[in-house]
Amino acid sequence: MTSPYPIVTMIVILAAALTLAAGLIWVERRLLALWQDRYGPNRVGPFGLLQVLADMIKIFFKEDWIPPFADKAVFIVAPAVILVTVLMSFAVVPFAPGIIISDLNVGLLFVLGMSSLGVYSVVLAGWASENKYALLGGVRAAAQMMSYEVFMGLALMGVVLLAGSFNLTSIVTAQRHVWFVVPQFIGFVLFLIAGVAETRRLPFDLPEAESELIAGFHSEYSGMKFGMFFVGEYLGVILISCLITILFFGGWLGPVLPPIVWFLIKMMFFICFFILLRAALPRPRFDQLMSWGWKVMLPLALANLLVTGAVALVWSS
């Protein structure tokens, strides 16, 4: 299944992911404006598309400042970690038959592992900044992402049970008859919520809540280091949308249109849904977030796994 020219695929996927992440900044601002009865950026270039370019130029020329009180090495490493872990996850994402860098047979676990390593970026950024708001943001991020990772993994195990594999390609091919969103609807909802929390998007952006913590863990960051957090967040959104598409909505499967087009359509739909969530919902309090995670989501995920396992056992016997 792996493509014949892995290097070419790699470069294409890397370029596409980074371009899409940059483009998402524009998409998000336009869509948010649409849902708030505004226009959003529409001055630079056609439909304001070049706004992203202007922002990029601006962010590249900003002073790249490291506070004298910060822990320098960790401060520099932290933004790189988020970008590396998210980009690594794209290695196992099957966009279409043949468009995949590495068809790992524990692909799903690899993605989960990389997302759990992504926590370090936020935590270390908060710690290295030596700033109380940044530290609070880092602590919040650690607690939030640890908690939501637990049932993110558990919610996916139902899919793994049904597909019988951790390989993302075979999970897609196992949905030839029915998308997993039908038998695994609870798993889908749980994964969606956990995905929002995992990418620290609104309404779960407590680690960087502006009204409480300035900018949370990246309060002290500027220039391209801040840009890396920014791009990392959007890459995370793309990744979670890709995963939802692959795990619950049949990946590239679909009639008439070529597979990659189907994949992109489904992915864009979920990206837009993420932005809609941001436009619609307020931020919960932190204790609400934690108790919601541990007291509602985790038991639900466990019950879902139990029922799925039982049904799968009865079905197969």
């Binding site: 759990s116 935590v123 908060g126 880092g138 602590v139 650690a142 640890m146």
Partner: peptide, 22 residues
């Protein structure tokens, strides 16, 4: 290998860092 990354590096060490930070 995946479990090593998820559990040791991704969960337990995060807790350690968390405690040291606190």
């Amino acid at each position: 290998a995946a479990l090593e990354v998820i559990i040791y590096a991704g969960a337990i060490m995060v807790l350690f860092v968390f405690v040291v930070m606190l």
